[in-house]
Design a protein around this nucleic acid. Structure first.
Length: 932
RNA sequence: GCCAAAGUGGCGGAACUGGUAGACGCGCACGACUCAAAAUCGUGUUCUUUCGAGAGUGAGGGUUCGAUUCCCUCCUUUGGUACCA
């Protein structure tokens, strides 16, 4: 096997005894339990909590956890009161899929998986306060997820005040003025009504109207339906027309669904990005997802009636290039605009377009298709007749679902115009329109554009808006790409939505009815008539016989607010107490993978802003700083088998044979050399195989692939901890490279860190493993080593450069080893410096140094610059940019003197070859460059 | 296509605001210890070389006394996004 244990090392530093000892000590003494302490500044370090899958942790998961643990311990040593919790995102599809196959309740599987995860996390020696653990599937937790749902239901977005408010303030407005002055963000078309109409309306009518305003609402919407999973999915859960989980095809379908009105927060979610320290990549992804575009809406009057159709455009400057109009197949105008003789053809097209799968639409982007409605609208400025077409490149969900087509300036309009022989009008003098391409650039001056002629497109845009406003046919308008998020799932293993139906109208449950606990069902499948699994539960209704909602919440519900629950996890009266919320405020460091950019990381910002608006919390962003840890990919090893023979050829010789590659377990390969005996056990049919070796070894090939069982490239942290200890694994994971880089996992090299830990131990011990620390006074050289290190470690941690800290520890250890330094005044601070990285080792040595309290109650050493001051500097002297010699000078030596001495130097004279230099550059305490 | 990030030895990577490229570690080679192996320790290790030196941070160009670092063009890889008017 790869991982040998060497007997004689065990005598020196016995991690397998030391690590569990301190883990138990820390736990029994509650060292990591934290309480509100206003005498200290707070620091909140958070990991994205995991979904506990059946496979357990692999070596990639802890990468981020180790980094936050180092930060937490460092901040603690620096005097902060550190909140560093962990929990589990324990609702989700895999447990439910497993339940469908085996009949086992997902709660059982989930608990088993959580136990396994906790055990693994504990063996890594993290400083989590486990008394604050949360599980999203625990009723005492999801009670509050349901409670937040309820608050959203009972709120609306007041545009005037730019914040969410209780629904009562909306009702008051209706009672006084009707809905005339109440604006909404989003696409819903709401009939206007007067106060009188409102006050005279029936209760059920009122409730229907209020649903148009509530921040969570039920509505008939086009959703992503995944037949294989039997549920709807939100946009971020669909990738390229397939479900993100499982990779099943997804189709568009119209369904009544619970939604979250995240669109109300589009602008604030966008502008809030400027105030948080998150990676630009994530910010950009969120910006693109929100997709703000600034433009105008214009009405085009119908040819034969006074109705009109509204379009959104970002290029109103091109208004005189409009030669046709295109509406989405799903558009409400389709019916109205279709003339009798076009009806058959239109209906055919609309049905075909609806049945086109998302996947099909994506893969045929270049192919435009459409059908003429038979109707015309009037150009608002020229009064020319403009034909209205239907095409599926226009999306019903964006803007108004209708486009003014400018074929000269838009490629899709151009393609469409070409295909159906519609006119193309140039509207900018420098426009370069070819046989196949439109020109969308804004260079040049407007032509063929009436009152816009002579202006640049940039000037024409405000001018155009001015004109439509004046005519009363349009306004400036901002559009967002982001859609409201579908919130219901036709699945079992999620939070029940706390709603019952009375007379077909939804009603949220009373606070005292929460939590609405997930009921038992006989099978985790839809009912015979297609209702979700909760439809199988007996008496899924309240005491008055009102049916409860049957869909459950999506995976992102519980994770959208968990960071607040950690602040006060056992509170049964509130989701967290005002005191806890005021003290801990928000997360100072949030670590996690970038794959959640447009899902979790956006939804949780939305909920945070909502809770802020409603006065439940004091912050409107929950994470000040976000760091993305890179993904750990798999690194597969291969052996090469000769076709039709039981023979394996070493990698370098495979070209001489006709072979095929086979994945081999990476755990039986070390530095690309195969352990042949282990291989014979690994592949039973190869027990008598023949091996063609090079230099007496069988060398394997390698490749980067996804980490997966089937590729035999999964490395389990338990095995590495067993062989090298948690401290070695922690340091090695950090040593691999910058935390935010993705990289394949490669265990080669872990021995270097292991050796380092032993070398560090040996600073305190002699060859007989006796503790030999002395109280001798340190030398200047030793103090310099220490203070260089203090400075470096502080700087590195503050900028998350944890890989370079490990190098610095190695360098300092090597230097102190060379000096045979075993002085307490140097080694004590050194031990504290290393404690965040190797907590078990540091705690052990701390006790050997005679301390009775945990090292994590110590103080971080203070850097003193005085030990780093030098009186001489050795200048590299370069001639024409090449370093040729080094000459040492006193640091305050004059440039003139240095120049004289340098030019007189024999090596320099040799290189200058008697010529007088053109220029001598002396950069103080940096470099000297002579130009000849 | 668009947006973002990244390209440095055999490998992971280092190099602060432009100033000795390759720190630290792995691997490899040689040596010590050993009957031997493992482990450990020591030395060396960018490439080419006529041993003088020359080349070199994805490619090409530019700014500079000096560029991995700044600017321009291009290539490759990874992540995101996909008819958004």
């Amino acid at each position: 096997m790869l991982l040998f244990k060497t007997q004689n090392l065990m005598v020196e530093y016995n991690f397998s005894e030391v690590e569990p000892k301190w883990q138990q000590y820390w736990e029994s003494k509650g060292i990591y339990k934290v309480r509100i302490d206003s005498s200290k500044p707070k620091y909140y370090a958070l990991d994205m909590f995991p979904y506990p899958s059946g496979a357990g942790l692999h070596v990639g998961h802890p990468l981020g956890y180790i980094a936050t643990d180092i930060l937490s311990r460092y901040k603690r040593l620096k005097g902060f009161n550190v909140l560093h919790p962990m929990g589990f995102d324990s609702f989700g599809l895999p447990a439910e899929q497993y339940a469908i196959q085996t009949g086992q309740h997902p709660a059982i599987t989930t608990k088993e998986n959580i136990d396994r995860y906790k055990e693994q996390l504990k063996s890594l020696g993290f400083s989590y306060d486990w008394s604050r653990e949360v599980r999203t599937s625990d009723p005492s937790y999801y009670k509050w997820t349901q409670w937040i749902f309820k608050q959203l239901y009972n709120s609306w977005y007041n545009i005037t005040n730019d914040r969410a408010e209780p629904i009562e303030t909306l009702i008051a407005k209706f009672e006084e003025n009707g809905n005339d002055k109440v604006g909404v963000i989003g696409d819903q078309k709401i009939e206007t009504f007067t106060a009188k109409e409102w006050n005279n309306a029936r209760e059920d009518q009122k409730q229907k109207i209020l649903l148009e305003y509530r921040l969570t609402y039920i509505a008939e919407t086009t959703v992503n339906w995944c037949p294989a999973l039997g549920t709807v999915l939100s946009n971020d859960e669909v990738k390229d027309g397939y479900s993100e989980r499982g990779g099943h095809p997804v189709i568009k379908k119209s369904m009544a669904q619970w939604n979250m009105r995240i669109t109300s927060y589009a602008e604030r979610l966008l502008s809030g990005l400027d105030d948080i320290d998150w990676p630009d990549a994530i910010k950009d992804m969120q910006r693109n997802w929100i997709g703000k575009s600034i433009g105008a809406e214009i009405d085009f009057k119908f040819e034969n009636s006074n109705d009109n159709i509204r379009v959104f455009t970002t290029r109103i400057d091109t208004i005189f290039g409009v030669t046709f109009m295109v509406i989405a197949p799903e558009s409400n105008y389709t019916d109205q605009l279709t003339t009798p003789d076009q009806r058959i053809e239109v209906e055919k097209y609309v049905v075909a377009a609806k049945n086109r799968s998302e996947r099909d639409r994506i893969s045929n982007v270049k192919q435009v298709s459409g059908v003429f409605t038979g109707s015309y609208v009037m150009h608002p400025f020229t009064d020319q007749k403009i034909p209205v077409w239907i095409a599926d490149y226009v999306l019903a969900g964006y803007g108004t679902g209708a486009v003014m087509a400018v074929p000269s300036g838009d490629q899709r309009d151009f393609d469409f115009g070409k295909k159906y022989q519609l006119p193309i009008v140039q509207i900018i003098d420098q426009q370069n329109i070819t046989e196949t391409e439109a020109d969308s650039t804004k260079n040049g001056k407007m032509v063929n554009s009436s009152f816009l002629n002579g202006l640049t497109p940039i000037q024409a845009i405000p001018k155009g808006i001015e004109a439509i406003v004046e005519k009363g046919i349009g306004t400036a308008k901002v559009n967002y790409r982001i859609r409201d998020a579908v919130f219901g799932r036709q699945r079992y293993w999620g939070e029940p939505i706390p709603v019952k139906f009375k007379n077909n109208l939804p009603e949220v449950l009373e606070d005292h009815e929460l939590p609405l606990v997930l009921p038992e069902v006989d099978k985790y499948l839809p009912t015979e008539d297609g209702a979700p699994p909760l439809g199988r539960a007996d008496n899924w209704q309240d005491t008055d016989g009102n049916a409860y909602e049957m869909t459950t919440m999506p995976g992102w519900a519980g994770s959208s607010w968990y960071f607040f629950r950690y602040m006060d996890p056992d509170n049964s009266e509130q989701f967290a107490s005002p005191e806890a919320l005021a003290y801990w405020e928000n997360v100072d460091l949030y670590m996690g993978g970038p794959e959640h950019a447009t899902g979790h990381l956006l939804y949780s910002r939305f909920w945070t802003k909502f809770l802020y608006d409603r006065g439940f919390i004091k912050v409107d962003e929950y994470a000040k700083k976000l760091v993305n840890q890179g993904m750990i990919q798999g690194r597969s090893n291969f052996v090469y088998r000769v076709k039709n023979e039981n023979t394996y050829v070493s990698e370098g010789l495979k070209g001489d044979y006709d072979t095929y590659a086979l994945n081999v377990d990476v755990n039986i390969v070390k530095d690309e050399v195969l352990d042949i005996e282990a291989f014979k056990l690994f592949r039973k049919d190869s027990k008598n195989a023949h091996f063609v070796l090079e230099e007496g070894k069988y060398k394997c090939g390698w490749e980067v692939e996804k980490m997966s069982k089937s590729k035999y490239n999964v490395v389990n942290p338990d095995i590495l901890i067993g062989s090298y200890g948690a401290d070695t694994l922690r340091m090695y994971e950090m040593f691999l490279g910058p935390i935010e880089h993705s990289k394949p996992w490669n265990t080669n090299g872990i021995e270097g860190v292991y050796k380092f830990i032993r070398k560090f131990w040996n600073l305190f011990h002699n060859e007989g493993d006796q503790f030999i620390v002395t109280d001798q006074a340190p030398t200047e050289a030793e103090l310099k080593i220490l203070h260089v290190l203090i400075k470096k470690i502080e700087e590195d941690i503050e900028k998350f450069s944890l890989n370079t800290s490990i190098s610095s520890f190695m360098i300092s250890t090597n230097e102190l080893g060379t000096l045979k330094c075993n002085k307490r005044s140097i080694l004590t601070p050194f031990t504290i410096l290393i404690a965040p990285y190797a907590p078990h080792l540091a705690e052990e040595i701390w006790r050997l140094l005679g301390n009775s309290e945990s090292i994590f109650n110590a103080e971080f050493p203070v850097f003193s610059p005085e030990y780093l001051i030098e009186d001489r500097f050795e200048y590299p002297v370069s001639i024409n940019g090449k370093v040729r010699v080094k000459i040492s000078f006193s640091i305050d030596e004059s440039a003139k003197f240095i120049e004289q001495m340098v030019l007189a130097n024999p090596t320099v004279r040799k290189w200058t070859d008697g010529k007088s230099p053109k220029k001598v550059i002396i950069v103080a305490n940096k470099i000297i460059n002579i130009v000849i």
